[in-house]
């Protein structure tokens, strides 16, 4: 079971942000992606989540082709992304943020709302219960009914993780989950990730904090200038001469 990224290319004007990226990420695993700024890491997430269209290449999740699916359909297929600069529905409360992301709601249409009110109420109960669990799991209870725009940077990262969890994903794409987060909260987020992983949820994580990342993931890939330079166990990858050249500027 895996996310297969097959020869994906994406250009913005004359700039090839992704240049034939080939990567296989096991859906139940923890997988790191590192690389210098502009290497194409976030663009890769955008293309994989359907946010941006690839110029070439195919993407499959557990054998199912995602190429023709819209972003919401990809999310509902079990793969969600978060953002480098955390995003939230800032005027909605933390609770509403999570509830909005729950899939398969009968009350998503006016017809469902008016003609199946009993079912809508039942589902709302179940969703509210899942949201409560998620809020407790992420330790966001204290701010559950506050507008999410008022959260701290770290809390917003947790909220993003929560919103991703609401769609019951198999794979979550985390874009720099530790950036701008205080060290205590970094530990907290790492713990949550590890625990979710033991429940079978996979993570692909873009991160600049190499130290934190290598503690977390057994496998990582290095990207540079739109290409994957190397892939494997952290130490082996970091010792790769190509990687040292590109990423660490050849410093030994």
């Amino acid at each position: 079971m895996s996310l297969e990224i097959h020869d994906i290319s994406k250009a913005f004007g004359g700039f090839r942000a992704l240049d034939g990226v080939r990567l296989t990420i096991e859906t139940g695993s923890l997988f790191g992606i590192i690389g210098p700024n502009g290497a194409g890491k976030s663009t890769l997430f955008s293309v994989v989540s359907g946010f941006a269209r690839a110029d070439e290449g195919q993407i499959r999740l557990d054998g199912q082709s995602l190429d023709s699916l819209s972003p919401p359909a990809r999310a509902r297929a079990g793969m969600v992304r978060t953002f480098q600069v955390p995003r939230e529905f800032r005027h909605l409360t933390v609770r509403e943020n999570l509830m909005a992301a729950a899939p398969k709601q009968t009350g998503e249409s006016l017809l469902g709302l008016f003609f199946r009110p009993g079912r809508v109420r039942e589902e709302e109960g179940a969703i509210a219960e899942r949201v409560n669990q998620t809020i407790r799991f992420l330790k966001l209870s204290a701010v559950a009914d506050q507008p999410s725009g008022k959260l701290s940077g770290g809390q917003k990262k947790l909220l993003e993780l929560g919103r991703a969890l609401m769609v019951e994903p198999r794979l979550i794409l985390l874009d720099e989950p530790f950036a701008g987060v205080n060290p205590v909260l970094i530990g907290e987020i790492m713990e949550r990730i590890t625990e979710l992983n033991t429940r079978g949820i996979g993570f692909a994580i873009i991160e600049h904090d190499l130290e934190a990342l290598t503690r977390l993931v057994p496998q990582l890939a290095v990207m540079d200038r739109g290409k994957v330079l190397a892939q494997g166990a952290p130490q082996a990858v970091l010792d790769d001469p190509l990687v040292r050249e590109a990423y660490l500027g050849g410093v030994s």
Binding site: S49, F51, P71, P72, R81, F83, A101, P103
Partner: peptide, 12 residues
Amino acid sequence: DNRDLARVSGIR
């Protein structure tokens, strides 16, 4: 609030 975020969150 945020249309792009809604789409990646699975909201149709």
